[in-house]
């Protein structure tokens, strides 16, 4: 019951973007593995809390996969390439001898505890940032930015809308193209099959973007100096309440300096979930 209530009321078009900026601010400032993992957890929790059937919502699961790939890739790179690091050796990879010129850099070789932790930290941060913005992207209507951005500048409005609608539109096309692929009697997955999906999906998104641009252009978007509002989306109490968690956290960090990372992690998880309460 409550879900329907929340969806009908909805947040301000910029709400999730503000939340994302504040939350990613906290993650970046602290730069701790525990915080990054907590951020990932809160994104997943929020994604499961705010379910809806709108097409832009479905992009989250695709970006989640992308984040996993990014995480794995970053780990792999971290393990295999870089300058040697001191510490206890956890495991050893076969090392490839590099030419004299690249002195100090190694490929493969022993992976120390320090390297392991550093890589995990960076990979988790990367995945957390991807997910935070993916969440914002998948929870707000990509077109709603048009309503709140200054309308004097046609290019900026259009560019931001196209940028934020790429992922949702691609997610929508993917399911259609995958169905069509099945109809053509292909079951395989793999690089070749992804190439076959990617091309129609890209063409589809491009076509939609062009249609949208033409529509905006012919409706005079960005051409008239004074624009008015029919029903301006207003920033309400619940919007403020929703972003208050990460905002206070960010302030607290600047004041307090360092606290135990696990404590902050728990606090973080708790405070980034304020949209649920709001």
């Amino acid at each position: 019951m409550k879900t329907a209530h929340i969806q009908r009321l909805g947040f301000h078009p910029l709400f999730w973007w503000v939340w994302a900026v504040l939350t990613s601010g906290v993650v970046l400032v602290l730069d701790k593995t525990e915080i990054s993992l907590a951020a990932i957890a809160s994104c997943l929790l929020l994604a499961s809390r705010f379910k809806s059937s709108t097409y832009w919502r479905s992009s989250f699961k695709w970006i989640l996969r992308l984040a996993l790939i990014a995480f794995a890739f970053r780990m792999l790179i971290g393990f295999t390439i870089g300058v040697p690091m001191p510490g206890q050796v956890v495991f050893t990879l076969p090392q490839i001898q590099l030419p004299e010129l690249l002195v100090g850099i190694r490929l493969g070789g022993p992976v120390t505890e320090q390297r392991l932790l550093l890589t995990l930290n960076e990979a988790a941060l990367l995945a957390a940032l991807i997910l935070i913005f993916a969440l914002a992207n998948s929870l707000s209507n990509p077109h709603s930015l048009l309503k709140v951005l200054p309308r004097r500048f046609y290019g900026i409005g259009l560019a931001s809308v196209i940028a934020t609608s790429v992922a949702p539109q691609a997610a929508r096309s993917i399911s259609r193209v995958k169905a069509a692929k099945r109809l053509r009697g292909q079951s395989g997955s793999g690089l070749q099959s992804w190439k076959r999906i990617a091309l129609p999906v890209l063409e589809d998104s491009l076509e939609r973007s062009i249609d949208l641009a033409a529509s905006l252009e012919s409706r005079g978007y960005g051409y008239f100096p004074n624009t008015t509002r029919y029903r301006a989306p207003s920033w309400k109490m619940r919007d403020s309440l929703g972003v208050s968690g990460p905002a206070y956290l960010l302030i607290a960090i600047f004041i307090a300096g360092s606290i135990s990372p696990w404590l902050i992690g728990a606090l973080f998880l708790f405070l980034t979930l304020t949209p649920v309460v709001a």
Binding site: S144, Y221, T227
Partner: peptide
């Protein structure tokens, strides 16, 4: 460009 019918119709007027 909008979710709601009314807002979509008003959008053309807003830009003008």
């Amino acid at each position: 460009v909008s979710d709601i019918v009314e807002d979509e119709i008003a959008f053309s007027l807003e830009t003008l």
